Amino acid sequence: MTSTSSEPDGFEAWLRGRVPERGLRSKGASVLEVLLTQPRRVSYSSAAETAELAGVNVATVSRTAQALGFSGWSDLQQELRARYLSSLSAPEVAAAQQTEGELGGASLRRDLDSLALLNRRFDEQLIRTIAEAIARARRVVIVANGSYYSVGSALGHNVQLAGYEATVVHDDAELANALSRTEPGDVLIAISFWRLYQSTVTAAEEAHARGARVFALTDAASPALTAASEEVVLIPAEGVAFFPSLAPGLAVAQAIAAQLSAVDPERTRRSIEAAETQWSRFRLLHRRPRLG
């Protein structure tokens, strides 16, 4: 590991912070030690391989994962890898993954695997909570930077189409101005993956301090982002080469928008009809529906 492992927001602090107060039994402690000392290796190992490294059986690895607050090894491994990769630079990430074969196909397969994991983890109630918060909000601010802006932009576009006001912010000056107007009754959705943008974390902290409801979409929330957020949606975001995957984040954005459309179907219907009228007026679409 890098030196970040000893910092409050580092890998080691995160993992040790999940150990229950009663501690772990000796065999569980052996598994924990392997996780702490060989994070790269176990991030890409099976439960059986991890068990061999720790000198225990596979059942002990599964029980240790559950003791640390995960449903099993696969869920622990996913977040373990996200935390490990977040400690690396872009060149180090590419070297750590060591993807074989054509990267285009590897990228597609990685996205399919991540979507399958997302589906297994999917929490309908959590998505409903976010959608209902958006519907009740006085004002919705969506914060996303870099390539993650695509996730925020898609979410903001569809929130507006569903009949609700939302602003997508990726400029730091604009973000500071938006936060200066934040108050109770507002909602802030913070979207950031991999090493996290500091401005996004700061926005979440400021919005929380001002009484707004904060929700985070991320692959591995920092303690600061977790503390500021009412709910955190953990989304697999590992890609290939230098690039985090955006497909699972976009899928969650679409899920939130779809659920939002069911909160007040009549409001959404009116909004979509009004938008359709303007699309026709401005002749935006190459193919237009027939009238009458």
Rank of each mutant, 00 (worst) to 15 (best):
F122Q: 07
F122K: 01
D123V: 00
D123E: 10
E124R: 15
E124P: 08
Q125E: 15
Q125K: 14
Q125G: 14
L126S: 12
L126F: 04
L126W: 04
L126I: 05
R128W: 15
R128A: 15
T129Y: 14
T129I: 13
I130A: 14
I130H: 12
A131E: 05
A131F: 13
E132C: 10
E132M: 10
A133Q: 11
A133C: 03
I134P: 01
I134K: 05
R136P: 01
R136A: 13
A137R: 07
A137K: 08
R138Y: 07
R138V: 14
R138C: 03
R139S: 12
R139M: 00
V141A: 06
I142Y: 00
I142C: 04
A144F: 09
A144M: 07
S147N: 00
S147E: 07
Y148P: 02
Y149A: 05
Y149W: 11
S150K: 09
S150W: 00
S150A: 12
S150M: 08
S150T: 11
V151R: 12
G152N: 02
A154M: 06
L155Q: 05
L155V: 01
L155H: 11
G156V: 10
G156H: 06
H157M: 13
H157L: 07
N158W: 11
Q160E: 10
L161M: 03
L161Y: 06
A162C: 09
G163K: 04
A166C: 05
A166G: 03
T167E: 07
T167A: 09
V169R: 01
V169C: 07
V169I: 13
H170L: 05
D172G: 05
A173G: 07
A173C: 02
E174T: 10
E174S: 09
L175E: 01
L175N: 02
L175P: 00
A176F: 11
A176K: 08
A176T: 15
A176H: 05
A178F: 11
L179V: 04
L179A: 13
S180V: 03
S180L: 04
T182D: 05
T182Y: 06
E183L: 09
E183I: 01
P184S: 13
D186V: 11
D186R: 14
V187E: 04
V187Y: 04
V187A: 02
I189T: 01
A190F: 03
S192R: 09
S192D: 08
F193V: 11
F193R: 03
F193N: 08
W194P: 00
W194M: 03
R195S: 11
R195C: 02
R195L: 07
R195W: 12
L196T: 02
L196I: 02
Y197K: 00
Y197D: 07
Q198W: 06
S199G: 11
T200E: 04
T200Q: 10
V201A: 13
V201Q: 02
T202W: 14
T202Q: 12
